[in-house]
Every structure is written in C-alpha cells, then in structure tokens.
Amino acid sequence: METLTPIQSPSIPNLPLFFLMFLIIYLIAYFIIFPNWSPKFRPEASSCAISLAHGTPALFLASRAIFSDPNRGFASINTNSQNSVLDYSIAYFLMDLCHYLIFYPSDLLFIGHHLATLFVFVTCRYVVFHGGYAILILLVLAEVTSFCQNTWTLASARRGDSRVAKRVYDFLSPPFYAFYSVVRGLAGPMFMYEMSKFYWSGAADDVIPRWVWVSWVIVVVMAISVSILWISNLWVEFYRERTGTILTKKVS
C-alpha cells in the first residue's frame, strides 16, 4: 500500500509575497484612501481595507480548494491549493496583528484572537500538513460575513459626521446582525460539533497529534463563543436604540 507524504513546496514564496501585498494595501489605505479621516478612525479603516482584500477572496479561494480535492475529509492531507489559501490567511493575520500591536497594543482580546488563529493556521500548514479541509471550512464560515462586517464597520465609524454613512449603518445593521447570528450562532457550532466528534473518535490521531486538534477545538470554540457574545451585545444595543427612538417620537 502506497504511503502518502505531505504535499510541500521546495520553497515558501507565497507567505512573504502575500504579506507584502497586505502591507502595501494597508499603506495605500492609510496614506491615500483615508488621509482625511480622523486619527481615531484612520487605522481602523485601513485595517478594514486589508480585511476586505482578504475576506471575500479567501472565501472563494478556500471554497475552490475544498471542492477541488476529491479526497477531502477531516484527516485528509493538505493539497497545494489548500496550503496557498492558508498562506494567504496567515499573511493577512500577521499584517493585522502588526496593526493592533502598533495602534491598539492594549486591545488584548483582538491580539489574543489573532495569535490563536495564527496558531491554528500555522500548525495546519507547517506542522501536521493535514486538516486543511476542516480549517478552510471554518475560514469560509468566518469570512462569508466579512464584506458586510467591514462595510458596517466603516459606516459605523463615520455615522456621526456623515449622513450617507448613517443611512448605510441603519440600513445594513439588521440584515448584517441576522446573517452573522445565523452563521456564527448556528452554522459554526454545527460544523464544530461534527469536527470535534470526528477528532474525539481518534480517527485522525495518526496524522494530527491529539495536542494539535485539541488546541484547534479549544481555539475555535472560544472564537465562536466570543462572536456570539459580540453579536448578542450588538442586538441589545440595537434594541435599545430602536426603543429609544420610538419613545422619543411618542414624547415629541
């Protein structure tokens, strides 16, 4: 019986190339696209720019890499296309981590989130060479809301001084919250359950050490929990804003 060996490239040009690309996009956003934004929102807007450059492309690239693999499964070996998508995402999170370390070093939640996510991607890509299918499905679930979230974030940042931004924010908030809630509150936990059940069965222990997949499960469960808490707080704030608006109209 032929033994499968990890698919590896003789060199690793993708990661530094992708990182350079995200760095250039960030600098263009910071110095050219958003030069007139206040110092409070300018870095966040630049972060949204690289997130937009990562999110939707990663969604389609990951989907293509997943479905082009006839042997896909929770313990399947990574294909070259899956490794390329992992490199793409590693480069983005490294760039965004630099952004947080420079502009928001006290934001330990996001810094911790990025470090944990990088741990999952890096171990999958460069340590065990397996599990790309599972990690990229999680990436798809994370990035399917990316475009809406970044648009909403940019509108939220400028809603106080721009009528257009305020209208976009008000229009986008309900559908974005609903979409995000379904993906992170329903689809994510359902897939995570199937993934955890497979790994707990021991079926992947020969190719993915237990400490690795246990770490993956912990990181993803924590990320989903934080996402659910975040969107829950937004729903509460949305309800208060709408209730306050209705009461104000009645009083006036």
Results as ranks from 00 to 15, higher is better:
Ile77Tyr: 06
Ile77Trp: 09
Ile77His: 07
Ile77Phe: 09
Asn78Leu: 01
Asn78Phe: 00
Asn78Ala: 02
Asn78Ser: 04
Thr79Phe: 03
Ser81Lys: 11
Ser81Tyr: 03
Gln82Ile: 00
Gln82Phe: 00
Asn83Tyr: 03
Asn83Met: 05
Ser84Tyr: 02
Ser84Met: 09
Ser84Ala: 10
Val85Thr: 11
Val85Trp: 05
Leu86Asp: 02
Leu86Lys: 08
Leu86His: 04
Asp87Thr: 02
Tyr88Gln: 00
Ser89Tyr: 00
Ile90Arg: 04
Ala91Asn: 05
Ala91Thr: 03
Ala91Lys: 00
Tyr92Ile: 05
Tyr92Asp: 05
Leu94Cys: 14
Met95His: 10
Asp96Thr: 11
His99Gln: 06
His99Ile: 09
Tyr100Leu: 13
Tyr100Phe: 14
Tyr100Ile: 09
Leu101Gly: 02
Leu101Gln: 07
Ile102Cys: 13
Pro105Leu: 09
Pro105Cys: 07
Ser106Glu: 13
Leu109Tyr: 04
Leu109Gln: 12
Phe110Val: 14
Ile111Phe: 04
Gly112Ile: 13
His114Leu: 14
Leu115Lys: 11
Leu115Glu: 11
Leu115Phe: 15
Ala116Ile: 02
Thr117Asn: 04
Thr117Ile: 12
Leu118Lys: 08
Phe119Arg: 07
Val120Glu: 01
Val120Ser: 12
Val122Lys: 01
Val122Gly: 02
Arg125Asp: 01
Val128Lys: 09
Phe129Val: 03
His130Pro: 05
His130Thr: 14
Gly131Phe: 01
Gly131Ala: 07
Ile135Leu: 14
Leu136Asp: 01
Ile137Asn: 12
Leu139Arg: 00
Leu141Lys: 00
Leu141Cys: 13
Ala142Cys: 13
Ala142Gly: 12
Val144Asn: 00
Val144Phe: 05
Val144Lys: 02
Thr145Asn: 10
Thr145Ser: 15
Ser146Ile: 12
Ser146Phe: 07
Phe147Gln: 08
Cys148Thr: 15
Cys148Tyr: 15
Thr153Gly: 01
Thr153Cys: 02
Leu154His: 05
Leu154Asn: 06
Leu154Asp: 06
Ala155Asn: 04
Ala155Gly: 08
Ala155Pro: 03
Ala155Tyr: 03
Arg158Leu: 11
Arg158Ser: 12
Arg159Ser: 06
Gly160Tyr: 07
Gly160Phe: 05
Asp161Ile: 14
Arg163Leu: 09
Arg163Trp: 03
